[in-house]
């Protein structure tokens, strides 16, 4: 099965981190990404720009509205994602638990809709 790991964290806290800590976290991400590439679980993954750069698109009554910001203001923001291949939910959550962001934010695990 394919799962999307959505990495949420508090951007304000994250951007206030001192430089050495930030470097350490990036190093952790590099190592984690390499490990799931090596194990074959990795399908895709990216870090996202800050939520303040987000734009939301809706169509209502046939009219497209484009607004600033993410869909909802929350304490934690979507900051990156991985698309992985895993046998089942237990394997997927085990990989999610190794995402560095799980330690200070949270990782949502969502199965990818299977077309049949």
């Amino acid at each position: 099965m394919q799962y999307l790991l959505l990495i949420y964290s508090n951007e304000a806290e994250f951007s206030a981190l001192p430089e050495p800590e930030l470097t350490a976290i990036m190093g952790d991400y590099g190592a984690f990404t390499q490990s799931i590439i090596a194990s074959g679980a990795f399908k895709a993954g990216d870090r996202l720009e800050w939520a303040s750069t987000a734009t939301t698109v809706r169509i209502r009554d046939g009219k497209t509205s484009i607004t600033d910001g993410p869909f909802a203001e929350t304490r934690e923001q979507l900051g990156g994602y991985y698309m992985i291949e895993a046998k089942d939910l237990d394997e997927a959550t085990a990989i999610a638990a190794r995402v560095p962001g799980a330690k200070y934010g949270s990782v949502e695990v969502r199965p990818v809709f299977a077309m049949s």
Binding site: K87, D88, L89, D90, P111
Partner: peptide
């Protein structure tokens, strides 16, 4: 079914 919760007894580590 959809989230792929396995039908098994967890391994010793879990």
């Amino acid at each position: 079914r959809l989230a792929g919760i396995p039908y098994e007894t967890p391994g010793p580590e879990r």
